[in-house]
Design a protein around this nucleic acid. Structure first.
Lengths: 151, 151
DNA sequence: TGCATATGGTTTGATATCGAACTATGTAGT
DNA sequence: ACTACATAGTTCGATATCAAACCATATGCA
């Protein structure tokens, strides 16, 4: 290993290390301000259904969230038991299901957004938004590369 | 909520969303190339002990990794059972313990670094290192703010 | 000297997550 | 039509993680 490799590894390692810790802390912060046991993955699914519309299959949602289908079975189970989504069999394909958000789910999603707004505001007041914007293309690129590498 | 708030929330949300997915995918990628059940948190502890030296208390390590002490109890238990660390009571303080890495732990840490080098190389060949370097200050800042906000 | 409080660590019960094995259904090719 | 393969979803057994309750030891203050 030459010097350049060492420095490269060092930089990459710090990058992933910071990202890992931020993901962890932000997830905790999210769940701390939530009520009624709403978790980040659950919110992500509800938000996804609101933004892109319902009538989605579990596998489509799993792909969008980049989690395994087993994980999605778990998350959807929680949401369904909470009454936040409605799951029905797919008419065309006997193996598949279709997921829609319910009114209760919409309310829960709006409450979640309201609950985290102050936290985001606190943070936004302390960092330069331009820097955040500027970091997005790299983050997106890395995310896509990792996704590509995985498959 | 005015328009600026909406855009701000959107940007922040994307930022944390990308970070969450990257953390997840990179953690999975790490564990996929590891052998013998080495996990990312376990490696992080070993690496920490090598870089900053042993004779650390569990709580010190937990703080450095930004996890709870209960989590660290768990991780150290795995490492100790694997023979990668040695834990002894603190002489001065009867409540505390002291942790050191073992030869086995050093070997495991070196193997882990070797195993992930190709992955890091693959990625490094596809992104601009300057961008990564440039993103580090923001990531560090956000991490510190979240940590501050938590306490 | 004692009692109240603080600190280090463990335990408990919940969550998410993965990979791999499994079931059921659909599709394609012979 | 049959057989082989592919796909959708579930289940299982492991991991990490948190918060909260708990225990033991230490410290500070009266």
């Amino acid at each position: 290993m030459n010097e350049a490799d060492g420095k490269l590894g060092e930089t990459m390692f710090r990058f992933f290390n910071e990202i890992g810790i931020i993901a962890q802390l932000s997830g905790n912060a999210f769940e701390k301000v939530m009520i009624g046991g709403m978790t980040l993955p659950q919110f992500s699914v509800l938000n996804h259904l609101v933004r892109l519309g319902g009538n989605r299959t579990p596998l489509q949602i799993a792909r969008a969230m980049q989690v395994t289908k087993g994980t999605m079975t778990n998350t959807l189970g929680h949401l369904e038991r909470a009454g936040h989504i409605a799951v029905r069999p797919d008419e065309r394909d006997g193996r598949s299901k279709r997921v829609d958000i319910t009114d209760s789910g919409r309310v829960a999603r709006d409450q979640a957004i309201a609950a985290m707004a102050p936290e985001l505001g606190w943070l936004a007041a302390r960092i330069r938004m331009d820097d955040v914007e500027a970091s997005l293309p790299l983050l997106e690129q890395v995310r896509k590369l990792l996704d590509e590498r995985r498959n």
